[in-house]
Design a binder for these strands. Structure first.
Lengths: 333, 333
DNA sequence: CTGTTAGCGCCTTCAG
DNA sequence: CTGAAGGCGCTAACAG
């Protein structure tokens, strides 16, 4: 049924070894033979079995990509980047969606290892350091993206969350806002913690005390952002500005503001992490942290391929700088 | 290094055949043995090699998913659904992004076949019927999603685009709009063509003639929607309403309207295909076609698994009904 | 430069 | 009910 390397060898009048060499582009094959083989391949429409190859070399040319939320445009862009560089280097990508569940994440890691993937790119769901330490010890090429894995010597590419949050919150302060709320993701993802830290530092630097009442943390999902924001807005002493720490939280927060019949920025100012394409719709008072998502994915893929090629390279931690975009410059309160 | 089925067999004092049977959950194994095997597996922390298995049975338990644009939330939701049902049935998903390129699509199909995938789910980039006919003839389980493949007896799950477009455009007409423009995707994707047809029918049914000047077609991307809309808005006799035929086109169109300093619906009314989560932001005059995206992905995956199990089942064409959502009821001009 | 050969880890007849 | 043995398609020594 399927045409094998043997068929090609026969047709070209050579051994399977030679065919294999030609396919792999190895040197030391007479041109005459090479051509005969190439012809045979063409005529037979031969396609090597990647499965057989994987079994033989004990490694597939697949790289596993585990992201924590495929509905988040942030990751969507990462996926694209990873796919682009992988494809260009002869790898394919197996995408898995851990859905912010540590269990799913672990299960996917096992699955991908069972598939003999060459390496893993993961946006870790939690500070579950163990699982990663084990991978590193087992010499499995793996790089963390977006979220940091503490105390584990592995490649990672993350954004400078502290700095970005600091800047964006400072911008709100500079525009006269004082009661600034924070709607954040859970602090056990490094991003949540770091964005909080930037927020706190900005307030401190400007002599404002953090009001715990104004800080909300939850799953980085729109429902959570919605709920938190409603609560904030219904406070005795509501915030005059809101800082959201993630794409999806932003959507939920904006919806809540809308439902309350309030306007941005007249009633509440707004600053958000992660830019989305439609944000021009709320532009009058939007300060946004735009992350180089494609670049992050690209870098992660490159690090991974690099490590696959040279497992002994020391781990690298790449810190990418987000950009602060102010849609309408300094709009005083 | 890796622990094989042989190691397990040895440890349990049985043959590899028995171990294999136990793993496959086959009957005819004495309970005593079964338990010993299970224990050995546990103790050795044995994980079967999916690669070796794939080679042996000439089929991997991967299903390939090729979508035309991973940045489009429509597909994002489909991916999620496919992954959910696949995982639950013991399959994994290999995701590929054809990026609206027929060449990439073809290349990915080849790649996936080389990986011996059990089946394919594809949102076809064009009316490239040949490639699909060949797959069907080769008995490769494949189902088309979102976009139709003409004259090819294969499974597909699509939305009722004609009807939905008809309704949504009719709604604009009912609200007093007459010069209704259409910003659509290329007509060689069935969705583009069908949505145009619904648009045309709606106009005809209400005695309005189609003005070719008001119909724009291009890649289903935001840049294209942006460009088309700018052109429309700068016409001598500009439209009083715009109908967009896709998620990304909608974003581009709204941006164009915004840039021109116009408002929705006071200056131009708006109706769009495919709902997005943030649409509440423009709600005053938004009529939206909401597709059951998750359901579509789920159905596609189910059809595929079904066909994998029974390749002879006659092809099925599932037509899912979109929902028309009117954010604010009949707002007269 | 080229061919021979021995598996990679698993499943599946075919005999017991 | 259980074991022995033969590949699946390919690559990587090892000999020529």
């Amino acid at each position: 049924m399927t045409v094998t390397i043997e068929d090609v060898a026969q047709r070209a009048g050579v051994s399977t070894a030679t065919v294999s060499r030609v396919i792999a582009g190895k040197p030391y094959v007479r041109d005459a033979l090479r051509i005969r083989v190439l012809d045979a391949i063409q005529e037979l429409n031969y396609r090597p079995s990647r499965v057989a190859r994987s079994l033989r070399v004990q490694r597939s040319s697949i790289i596993g990509l585990i992201i924590s939320d495929i509905q988040n445009p942030f990751f969507t862009s990462v996926v694209r980047a990873v796919e682009d560089v992988a494809q260009q280097r002869g790898f394919s990508v197996m995408l898995c969606n851990s859905d912010e569940s540590t269990d799913k994440e672990a299960a996917y890691i096992d699955l991908l290892l069972d598939e003999q993937v060459s390496g893993l790119i993961v946006s870790p769901t939690s500070t579950n350091t163990d699982i990663y330490r084990r991978l590193v010890e087992a010499n499995v090429p793996v790089v963390a993206i977006d979220r940091r894995v503490e105390n584990t010597p592995m490649d990672m590419v993350v954004g400078d969350n502290v700095q970005a949050a600091y800047e964006v919150v400072s911008h709100l302060i500079a525009n006269g806002y004082r009661r600034i709320a924070a709607v954040l993701g859970v602090p056990d993802a490094s991003t949540g913690a770091e964005r909080y830290e930037g927020y706190e530092r900005a307030l401190n630097a400007h002599g404002i005390e953090v009001d715990p009442e104004l800080v909300r943390q939850g799953m980085p999902r729109s429902e959570s952002g919605h709920r938190s924001t409603l609560q904030l807005l219904q406070l005795q002493n509501p915030p005059d500005a809101i800082f959201t720490g993630n794409n999806l939280l932003t959507i939920g927060a904006l919806r809540a503001i809308d439902e309350m019949g309030l306007r941005v920025p007249e009633d509440v100012a707004f600053a958000a992490f992660d830019e989305m394409e439609w944000m021009f719709l709320v532009k009058p008072a939007l300060t946004v942290v735009a992350q180089p998502t494609y670049a992050m994915g690209k870098k992660a893929a490159e690090l991974l391929l690099q490590r696959i090629a040279d497992p002994s390279r020391p781990p690298q931690e790449v810190l990418l700088q987000p950009t602060i975009k102010v849609h309408e410059s300094s709009r005083a309160k």
